[in-house]
Design a protein around this nucleic acid. Structure first.
Lengths: 336, 336
DNA sequence: TTGTACGCGTTATCAC
DNA sequence: GTGATAACGCGTACAA
């Protein structure tokens, strides 16, 4: 279609009959420009459809307006929501946001982190695939970096994550009050720091509730394989799933085994998702403050970009427990 | 921390004792370089952790390796999946992908499309907020562009979308065979081209099935407000929701009204989502080929970037109907 | 207000 | 065949 090339600052200058320096001044509002000249320049900009090349600008000004976020999986609603909020926050501060997905693959994460450097972002927010993030960073990684959601092995970076302990303690209390006397807690693996924190919080507040932990692995198959025999053998009063995949797989398994919730077994989940309100009965769940987490992560990065040199620290955000019908154990369901 | 500035091609050249042109040649493999010199350069690159600035390169070479995608809502699982696949495809072809969300706001979409130009992407894939995309593009929009998923008012761009008609016709057949004699079809608005196509396809194949369309608007409240009286008044044998919000809201309403699926009313949905397999009973739904759509969109854009000048056209992809228990109407449920 | 050197990487041209 | 020199793309910033 139209003219071959994108209009440059020189074309605008020529059309307005001024120098490129003046155009730059008008665009950036730096130096004072006579009103009539400024108007001529603006007219030329409009007519040509000129848009400043942010990267040419960065090249010279050495000030990047790009931030980046790396998440394990864009198709995961929680991470998608995180990114969505983050983009909005960044944009509000005049930053563009590059969105990268590691597809839950540490190797791909390393790749993304490396190729990201080619874009010279000002800062980085990352939800790591696992705790070993530091090993996958380029040795000389010198980008302001905030780690979110997942707890890394090292405290080298700022961290924003949820506070797992208290809400899991609250869940233990809730299940006790609902009448449960035993609870099986499941989660992918205790080597995941978040899962370990959740189990610790629960166990520490279990009191008379007989709590037991079962590691069920990372995919639906292994959840079924390890959980089914345990449930057939001796069924606990309640099941508490500590992560979303475990939740989903165990909920399906319970249905497949013909057990009724909450009559045969009460059910609760960490990591609330839409479907948990739609199923019958609706599920008691722990809501993670995704939006607050994204905002806090951005605020932290923003402070670093503004020159904050204080030692790195961790921000932990509270979660919310929402009791629903899945833990309303009918009286009489549990024989004494 | 480390040295203040990111290593440049000049630092590499200095360290390897060669000119910057030679470094460039080694990096890009363009001209022939003696093996020992090349090795020296590569060593310097490793030691300094040099990564080429893609934008400085683009500036000179005038070849962008950035593509962009604009979606209405990143938090929508379907769009998230679309983006996820697209990123993978693009990366495989050596392109980075910029991900932008319009948050379902036409004004914000216009904004994103404008600010995108500052990044000088090679091409654009967009899922528009609504049919009036063209009006929100800069007047001189000259970027290779592929529209996906939603049907725009104009045929100015390449289009990749699902083929709504046949699968909706199949749904009509399925419901008839299941024993339904009347079906209420709901959807946000017939002014949305996709919804209109779905209704047309259904109606055209309804035959003896008494089909009626009800427009229920765009938010959960209005769905409830308009659907509830209709269901109380005279209940159809089946309900077919043509989009995800309508599906979700009507499914909840049916539960709230105390109606049993499929005994009291059969239920089917366009736009299959995870939760539809988890609820009781699992829902009959139409699966959109999101992955195929993303791949086709990328292939189309890729062809344009490679110089394909053929007239713009539309690619329509088939959907899949998966019958589940929600339309298994028990014999005897419908009195003759 | 303007001229112009500069940031980075590419590429044509030239010297060995 | 190998490698260096220098002009160039764009926008910024400072001296004039």
């Amino acid at each position: 279609m139209p003219r071959g090339s994108v209009p440059s600052i020189r074309m605008v200058a020529a059309r307005a009959g001024v120098s490129i320096a003046t155009v730059s001044n008008v665009v950036n509002g730096k130096a004072s420009v006579a009103v009539d000249v400024a108007e001529r320049v603006r007219a030329a900009i409009r007519e040509l459809g000129y848009v400043r090349d942010v990267n040419a600008a960065r090249l010279r000004a050495k000030k990047a307006t790009l931030a980046a976020v790396v998440v394990p999986d864009l198709a995961n609603p929680m991470f998608a929501a995180f990114v969505s909020v983050l983009e909005h926050e960044a944009r509000g501060d005049g930053f563009d946001l590059a969105v990268l997905s590691s597809r839950n693959d540490p190797a791909e994460e390393a790749h993304r982190l490396a190729s990201l450097r080619a874009w010279r972002p000002a800062g980085l927010i990352v939800i790591p695939c696992d705790g070993a993030l530091v090993g996958r960073l380029p040795a000389d990684h010198a980008l302001p970096t905030v780690v979110a959601d997942r707890l890394p092995d090292e405290g080298r970076f700022d961290l924003v994550a949820v506070d797992n302990g208290p809400v899991c303690a609250a869940m233990a209390g809730h299940l006790r009050e609902a009448g449960a006397r035993s609870c099986l807690v499941i989660g992918s693996s205790l080597r995941i720091a978040n899962i370990a924190e959740r189990w610790d919080g629960f166990q520490g507040a279990a009191g008379p509730l007989a709590a037991e932990m079962l590691e069920v692995g990372f995919d639906a198959d292994s959840v079924t394989r390890r959980l089914r025999p345990r449930l057939s053998e001796r069924r606990p009063d309640a099941l508490f799933a500590l992560d979303h995949p475990s939740s989903l797989a165990s909920f399906q398994l319970i249905g497949a085994m013909g057990l009724a919730i909450p009559r045969d077994i009460a059910f609760a989940s960490f990591d609330e998702m839409d479907w948990m309100r739609l199923v019958t009965p609706p599920l008691t769940a722990v809501l993670q403050p995704v939006e607050a987490m994204a905002k806090a992560a951005w605020a932290r990065l923003r402070a670093r970009l503004d020159g904050d040199e204080s030692p790195t620290g961790a921000i932990r955000l509270p979660c919310t427990l929402t009791p629903r019908a899945s833990t309303r154990i009918p009286s009489g369901a549990i024989p004494r």
